[in-house]
Design a binder for these strands. Structure first.
Lengths: 179, 179
DNA sequence: ACCCATCTAGACAGGTCGGTCTATCGCTAG
DNA sequence: CTAGCGATAGACCGACCTGTCTAGATGGGT
């Protein structure tokens, strides 16, 4: 449900109540509970949907960046810059889910982490194609840069962190290529 | 209040109710509300206290790292490795506060961000002493690495991200020194 | 025309939320 | 001794929480 995504993303997963959500969406309570057993399952479904859309959008921009592996990697940061610039940007819902459900065994925490792992896997692939000596380690570093930039962009409502992280990524790629 | 910190950090700021907290601490409700006007003010006080302790502990380890600026900077990452290894590690309460109160104008969001800014300022100082060409930019990058490593360490309950981020930081410092 | 699945609205339950209030207790300073 | 301050326990408030349930409206397929 688009409304659920909007409210959860805007206000937080725990902060939004079922009633609020249903009123905003104009949907009856039973309709919701016929589709999802609980609020938790709704959240899991929303996260899953968002994960797919997120990665599809990101990979589309990567694909549009041309054939050069380094440019494709840097396109990841350009994509984030565009995201940070979007009007309703409120950080990464997965980082926020990890924060709101801090217990690592919680299903929502784990689902959010699966997204981060999936993104990291895509980065690893890109790094490998770019000929990195240790693609997994480089992807790990790049994902730190990205997550840090997301948090900073959220708190400052600025797109600058994307360029900052991109510049560092470019340095690291060059350094790796030189070795 | 030590109990407040423990519960807030373990379960989340929104997840812990006042009643739960008071029962755990063995304190009467009126006592709490004589000291703090609201739960929000209690949270702000807790965050402020944690900010001071956090930075004091970090800077103590930096001071113990000896006189060489690069070693002092890398000590920041060693300090994080020790933190990640602590039994009750559940990520960074400030990142989590930014997530739980996603609206950038919210007092708690802003208080959490002030902590990140303060840490970044300390990093900038260390970078400047280390002779970085652009200390602010380098500190920005290092803080991305740190925040990303914290999120990953939280979700995976591992100390490895500290070493991973440290290695990247060492590369970047070397790169800067070579230029 | 009818059936049945699916929607709606809304009452209801039992519990928790943050916050206020009263009344009593214990300590300590004068 | 006593006055007063700060703590206590705990009732209480209205609002909200997730989740269940009933009862009626809607609409498409046969």
């Amino acid at each position: 449900m688009a409304t659920a995504w909007r409210l959860f993303y805007r206000d937080g997963l725990r902060a939004v109540g079922i009633d609020t959500l249903l009123a905003e969406a104009g949907v009856a309570k039973m309709t919701l509970y016929n589709h999802f057993a609980s609020k938790e399952e709704l959240i899991l479904a929303i996260l899953d949907k968002r994960d797919l859309e997120f990665r599809a959008s990101l990979l589309a921009q990567v694909a549009a960046a041309g054939p050069y592996p380094v440019q494709r990697l840097l396109a990841v940061f350009d994509w984030h810059e565009g995201w940070f610039a979007s009007e309703a940007f409120k950080g990464c819902v997965f980082i926020r889910a990890l924060s709101e459900y801090p217990e690592p065994t919680h299903p929502i925490h784990q689902a959010a982490w699966r997204h981060k792992v999936a993104v990291k896997a895509a980065l690893t692939e890109l790094c490998a194609v770019a000929g990195a000596r240790d693609a997994a380690a480089l992807a790990e570093t790049l994902s730190y840069l990205i997550d840090g930039a997301i948090v900073t962009a959220h708190a400052t409502q600025s797109t600058a962190p994307a360029r900052s992280a991109r510049a560092t990524a470019a340095q690291l790629l060059k350094l790796d290529a030189a070795a």
